[in-house]
Design a binder for these strands. Sequence first.
DNA 1: GTCTATAGGTTGATAGAC
DNA 2: GTCTATCAACCTATAGAC
Lengths: 192, 192
Amino acid sequence: MNTQNTSREKILNTATKLFQINGFNATGLNEILEESKSPKGSLYYYFPEGKEQLALEAIQLACKSIVERLRGTMDKYSDPVEALKYLISNITDDLNDENKLQDISISLMALETYSSNEKLRLACEQVFTELSNVYAHKLIQSGFAPQKAEELGMAIEIMIEGAITICVTRKDTVPLSAISNILNVLLSQDSL
Amino acid sequence: MNTQNTSREKILNTATKLFQINGFNATGLNEILEESKSPKGSLYYYFPEGKEQLALEAIQLACKSIVERLRGTMDKYSDPVEALKYLISNITDDLNDENKLQDISISLMALETYSSNEKLRLACEQVFTELSNVYAHKLIQSGFAPQKAEELGMAIEIMIEGAITICVTRKDTVPLSAISNILNVLLSQDSL
DNA sequence: GTCTATAGGTTGATAGAC
DNA sequence: GTCTATCAACCTATAGAC
């Protein structure tokens, strides 16, 4: 998971996990320090701007993890429909194993910050854009027209975020199955 | 908007608004009391179980508002595709006017509570189910098979929640336009 | 660089006068 | 039913010893 053992990385990794699962407002700095076994002095030494800076870096780190997973699964199949099915089954397994948003979605932080913190909102916006682009790129590779691929990429990102939100709320993975079928229909008939 | 002027209703209406827009954790009881011009004594008189009870009733009231809007717009057109287009343009107008979640979505509260408060999680789950059913009902009315309608109803709910999340994060309404097109394709070819 | 102590503010909740 | 005063607990952040 995390390679180095510096205090900075321990704090950031723990913060990234807790912010994703429980949210920005529900996660206290004390909680992060306790779970990462770090002293408060270190936090403000490494993140002099405090909680906001920590959250900003956490969003960016979460983005890296999510994109990595996404790329890793999408590259397993050349056919985009097969690749998406595999990605969705992958996320489904994770949610079944543990009903938590870690390495899955930053929707919670996005909704917590859209109206209260412009810097963090922008960081979340960038995550959504990047994820959409990964999907679009996959579609372009398999022959979709760039404009069509971009629109579909955004639609895929929308469906996955929406499905995850409702999955964790319901504590089941039916919504992900539902969009798996929809994507099948959508991408098969709507090509080129 | 609110008909009666009892302290209870003033508190509940304000809480419902603030919880939806800023979330459960970001909204303090003091803030609710200040905005509703109510004394703290009244809050605990009418909501003896405190913040949790207030949030529970707020989720249910928000559900009523959202369902009302949804039914109101869906009933304007008999064709479900036209009705959904109208609903989406309606939500788009609201978000353009003011980039806030009020009377639009409870996704923020759902994500804040899914892992920390079972009572509130269940209330949010019920909201998502109810909204899905409104869509499904509309599809059944226009000739879709019940099972197909149920699956599509959930898919519609997923897409709208996902699109709203990304809309407020981006501060634009492009995602809602994107799913409007998708729904057109999806419901036109996939009927009966 | 690490750690502790603590400041200064806010939170949800309670007690008790009226 | 209404209102105020107050509580203990928590929060983010800072100061300063080591």
